[in-house]
Simulated scan of single mutants.
Amino acid sequence: MYKRLIQTLLPALVVLLSGHAIATQAADDAVTSSEQSPHELIETVTDDLLQMIDEHRETFDDEPQAFFDSLDCLLTRVIDFKWIASNVMGTYRAEATDEQREQFVETFHRDLIETYGRGLISYGDETIVVLPPKEDLEGKRRVTVVQEIRGKDGVFPLYYSMALNREGVWKITNVVINGINLGKTFRNQFAQRAEKYDGNIDQVIANWSAPSDVMKSEG
């Protein structure tokens, strides 16, 4: 149960693609995010996410897209998907065209929302707690927020790397759980695919959703 929860809940809260929410909603979210500390923001979005899961659990099989759309809008508030996707491309980012970079952001975004959204629906009744900061965060532009998933099988820590963007809004840029660095894992996956397809970035993007040996080894 916990292994499945880690593989699904974490990337949805993390990893971690902004740009598909409507403009007015994005503006409202930016104001809300800028008024909250990074710890408050993670706690608020987690509460909203759990409520969203409850609301869509019974109707998901018939209307999965409704859940994916709601999840997309919610996670856009806290995840810098564009920044994450750019870093996932690693050194291949410099070789890619603007169109390829944009296409990968869109593909990476969609894959995370749909793949991990399906796993989130099966989330149980574990307790999720955001730990208070251990130091004064005043003036900091990069912080780590620690969250714990607590249940009968143990406690699993999540470490969110968060950065203050140019608009003054806190965004998640990476997540580490039990020593597994998701940003690094996805970057290794991209490099593995690029090697497999002889550096053909279009092929990497087209086959991004296929099972990866990197992801299998992490699981």
Rank of each mutant, 00 (worst) to 15 (best):
K3A: 13
L10H: 08
G19H: 07
G19C: 10
A27V: 11
A30V: 09
S37P: 10
S37Q: 12
H39D: 07
L41F: 13
I42E: 01
E43M: 13
E43P: 10
E43C: 12
L50S: 09
Q51P: 06
D54K: 14
D61Q: 11
D62P: 00
E63L: 06
A66K: 03
D72A: 07
D80M: 13
I84Q: 14
S86M: 14
T91S: 07
T97Q: 09
R101M: 05
Q103L: 04
V105N: 14
R118P: 00
G119W: 03
G119T: 02
Y123M: 15
K134W: 13
E135F: 13
D136P: 11
L137Y: 06
E138D: 08
G139I: 11
V143P: 01
V146M: 09
D153T: 12
L158C: 05
L158T: 03
Y159K: 14
Y159N: 08
Y160L: 07
Y160W: 13
L164W: 00
L164A: 00
E167P: 01
K171L: 10
T173V: 08
V176M: 02
N178F: 00
R187F: 06
R187V: 02
N188Y: 04
N188V: 01
Q189G: 06
Q189N: 07
F190L: 04
A191S: 10
Y197W: 11
D202W: 00
V214S: 03
M215W: 07
K216I: 07
